[in-house]
Structure formats: structure tokens, C-alpha cells
Design a protein around this nucleic acid. Sequence first.
DNA 1: CTGAAAGCGCTTACAG
DNA 2: CTGAAAGCGCTTACAG
Lengths: 340, 340
Amino acid sequence: MVRPGRRGGVTSRDVARVAGLSQSTVSRVLQGNTNVTPGARAKVLAALEETGYAPNLLARAMKTHSTGTIGVVVSNITNPFYPQMLQALSMAMERADRRLTLFIGDGAGERAALDAIRQRLVDGVVFTTATTSSRPLREAMDHGAPVVLVNRAVEGLPCDQITTDNVDGSAQVADYLMAAGRRRVGLLNGPQEASTAREREAGFVDRWRQLGGEVDPALAVRGDFSYQAGYAAALDMVSRPRPPEVIYSASDSMALGVVNGLRACGVAVPEDMWVVSFDDIEPARWEVFSLTTVRQPMVEMADKAVELLLNRIADPGAPLRAVRLPTHLVVRGSTAHFRV
Amino acid sequence: MVRPGRRGGVTSRDVARVAGLSQSTVSRVLQGNTNVTPGARAKVLAALEETGYAPNLLARAMKTHSTGTIGVVVSNITNPFYPQMLQALSMAMERADRRLTLFIGDGAGERAALDAIRQRLVDGVVFTTATTSSRPLREAMDHGAPVVLVNRAVEGLPCDQITTDNVDGSAQVADYLMAAGRRRVGLLNGPQEASTAREREAGFVDRWRQLGGEVDPALAVRGDFSYQAGYAAALDMVSRPRPPEVIYSASDSMALGVVNGLRACGVAVPEDMWVVSFDDIEPARWEVFSLTTVRQPMVEMADKAVELLLNRIADPGAPLRAVRLPTHLVVRGSTAHFRV
DNA sequence: CTGAAAGCGCTTACAG
DNA sequence: CTGAAAGCGCTTACAG
């Protein structure tokens, strides 16, 4: 093991010196270039081993204009949906030999990630929570920033987008509740800036009305996808003169709050109140929740997002792609195992 | 807005051309160097604005030997302890104007993060789950890699380490259970490679024996800090000829599994079985769990970790620091609100 | 097949 | 105060 001289560590020049060859040749061996004699290659390999060389990837990135790092923006990492998405994204990136730089937070995270593209720190960015109103995102598009949206869509934004069939998932919920005879539904919708929220709301309401159901506007409230919002909504709905028979939450994260809020009020699920939601995150299947919920194929979403982003980076001019994956209702104990 | 010519975007050279000055002067203005006439500065500022310049941080990093990015290794992001730690670390780094590159996974994540240091992609790494057995970590220390351990410690490893008083926290649990008269304790310990597991186990057992308690070896099992391990342990303990009266889990993540496993068996908490654990993550205070647990000061841990790591990067030769933060028992419903 | 050289986009001594 | 130049550590045409 040759001790590095300066703070910078061993360079390819050091390796070249040890091998008795030029730095170019070392670089060629590193790049798998075939124009190297077996003898030279062997010397370089030995020198690489002896010096414990690790390439300076900043320098490489300077030349190649590619850092091998992808940014990921999540709004709130303590919402369990995002760790699961992040896990899936991380695995897909690892397979593609890419690193993941994480940006947490809605506005600030988004801006920081977009800056990182311009600053050449990341090759592209995955947005898990894009909102319609994001001006920085639109501006980044004008500059051709390599971006992919997963989970949420933003109409008219010229980038690749991966979503799931939120409308159909919600329609399945409507079908299910109508067949079960639960007509008085409390709707806990998500924030209007989120496409997921809009689609899940419309998907349910449209089908529900088609089926002859009614939606009491007094029982339609809006949360921000947080546990706290679900908790508060549960307390609110329960205190109404005529409470709903079932609460349909636009996300599992809010549904966890709903179930706990109901428990705090002494309202039993499913005996006194049914709960249905969307996502099928891990806690949904825990006994204490046992949520009937619409499953999104997280791993497929993440895989597709990474695939499209890498394609986009490799070929910025390729036609835009919009992928929509199917969803399906998973029935569990929070609706008393009623099966249609 | 001047359109960038090449794919590389606007460079400081482009800005210089627009300003009618040299690239050096642009760089000086960017660095806040005072040796620039107000007139020149104004011209540069205008050109910066006009061109929409963003510095290439790779190039800057090449010169300064500092990337402004910190690596963070977490073993399992779907264990809710880690998102909370990550959130706190992310906020601390944001305040320090550092980016966060995330490495998920025990062995692979650790190696990838250590490689990233050698490859100059990150200035240092925060390990949230170091284990005693990690050879790569020891090797990295030999090369003077800037590393800080938070949460878990590794004895003899020459790096800064932030832990909490696991021994004392567990002793508080022993005191509490003894005072409550719950003598038959099922111990769900963590993996031996984890210092937290060893300390929590020893802290409890030592104090418990001091107080005259006994630990039935048949009721001491070991898990890997996962939900699944807790779930399985609950099923196991409940099926014993003489089950425990209380299960003390070495982590909340396992305790969530314990509570659900007990529920699956129809065992009521706290009526039929008490549950106590360690960490005080968010779900611990949800009504469905209401865990009596030992609180760790996560935000302080994260803040301290980032502070020590940045100091270490700035001054590699500074004396090693070991910080241990206090813990305290939080009593909730999983022990029937018994208060000592 | 191999080496000398240019250049990625910065920062910062070095002259003037 | 300002500019020309060196250099961070690579990759890759360009000669030979």
C-alpha cells in the first residue's frame, strides 16, 4: 500500500509512476479500452492494487459531464409513504450504479434539487411530490432539466411522468361501498395542488353519483396528507350531528391518523365506523389498522421512474412519456372484511 | 437571459465576456473578494443576472477539495426510527448549507459511503448503524476518513461518536417495572453487534438483579430491530408454558411488531400484557400503541453529529470526541399508566 | 499500442 | 485592482 502524498489521495498519475507507464495508459485500462497490450494492462492492474487507487469521481464527472448521482425530492420523510418510495428508488438506482442525493421538503427541497442540476451536482431529479403551482419546476423545464415526476402528475409539464390509476382506484372504492350498502360517506380529500388528491376525489365522486349515491358536502373535508390532518378530521366527523358510516381517506398516512383519532373518541373500527384509504403502505396491513385500501405498485413506479429518467438523461430529445400503472382495492378488517 | 451555447450551461467565462472583464474578476466577485472596484463588481453582478449563471460546483470542488455533500448511511429506511433521524440530520445539514447523499443498507450502504469518500464525492459520512464487526469501517479509519457515528457506538474506533445513555434508560425501565411489581419480564433484545442492544440489555439486567429481580433465560430472545422480529417474538412468548407479564423490547420498531403480534393472538395490552420499549419514535405515541418507552433526543443527536463531523472535516487532527446524551422513560398506556 | 497534450470550469497565487 | 496562468484529476482525440 503506497501512502498518498498529498491530502488528495492516490491519483492516476501516482499509479502510472508505479506502473512505469503514462497516465493515459492507466486511464485506458480503467476505461476498459482494448487498445492496451496485455503486458501493460497487467502492470497497471498491479499498480492499481499496490496503490489502493480510487478514481476521483469529481474529475471524471468534469470531463464526462455526468456525475452518476440522481436527486430525489420528498416532501415529508416521516410520512411512511416516502420511505417506502425512497427504498424502491434507492434499489433501482443501486442496480443502475447511481448514487442518490436526498432533498427533503416541499418548496426548499424542490428548489435545492433544481439548483443541484444547474450546479452539475446531479444528473437529474426524481420528484415524488410535484404540485401544480411549482414555478421553479416550470422554469427548470424551460432549461431542459432532466426531471421525472413519480406519484403525482402536473398537467402540461414537459417531462416524463409516472402515475397510477387514481381515478379507477377510487371508483373501485365507490363500487365496493355501494355494494356494501354504506351510503353515508365522509370524504377526507387531499390538497388540491396534488394531482393524486384531485383524481382520487373525482374518481370516487363521479362513480358514486353514477351509482346513485350522494355526497354530503358537509362531510367532505380536506387534509394535507399528514397523520395530524387525519386525526383532526376524525374528531371533526365524529362530532357532526349525523356522522358518516365510513370515512374514505385520500391516503393511508391520513387514515392512520383517522384510526387513532377514532380510537381517541372511543369509536370502534369497523364496528362503529368503517375506514377506507389509498396507497397500501406497510402499516396498512398491521393488525391495529388492518386498512382496506387501494394498492399502488410502489416498486414498479420507482423502477419505471428511474428507467425513464436515465433514458431522458441519455437522450434529452426523446419523446415525452407518461406511464400510468394500475391500482386495485385490498379489503381488510377496517371494513369488516366485507367482500363484494 | 443569455442562452448557454454548449450543453454545459453558462460558465464564469461567459459571464466575464458579457461583463467585459476577465474570468478571474468574475470569480473574485463570486468569492466575495474585496479587491474589486465597485464599478467592476456592478458590471459582474449585472452580467451574472443577465446570464442566469450558476456555478459548476464540481469544478469548484476540484479546486477547493470540498464538495459540500455529506453521506448518511441508514440500514433500513422503512424502520421509522431512521426517517426521523434522517429528517433531523437533513435539517442540520441544510442549516450548514450541506447536501445529503443517502446510502441505504447495512453492508452495501456502508461500503458505498466509504467509497464515496475516497472518490471525493462526499466530504464525510454519518453512520447511524455502525456495527462492531464492520471491517470496511476500520480500514477507512486507517486512511483518516472523516466519519461520525450516531446512535450506535463502536468501541475503540477512532472517530467521533454520539450516543445516548442506553444503560441508564434501561435502568429506569428496571426501576419502573420493579416498583410496579411486574416481576416476570420477557426480554426482546437487539442484535449483539449493535452497541445499543448490548447496553440496553446490560443496563436492564444489571439493575434488575441489583433490585432482586430474576431474568428467566427462557424468556430472553433476540431480534434484529425489525417489526417482523417483534411480531414473531410476541407469538413466541405468548405460547410459552409460563408467559411473561411484560415484554421489554430493545427498540420501538420491534415493539410495534410485538403489539401487533399480541393483537393477532388476542392478547390485550396492557390488560393481559404490558409492553415497554426504547426510542420514542412518532408511532409510539399513537393511540393504537401508546408505548411506554425510553426517549432518545433525536434532534440533539443529529445536530451534534453534524456539528462534530463538520469540525472533523475542517480539522482532521482535532482530538476525538465522544458525546453521550441523556434518556428518560415516558410512561404511556402500554403499561396501564402506572406511574412510579 | 503508447504518450504528450488539450480541456472540463473553477480558485488563487503571481505579475503588473 | 486586474488579468494571464497554473493546476485540481481525470478522459480522449491526436501524433507517432
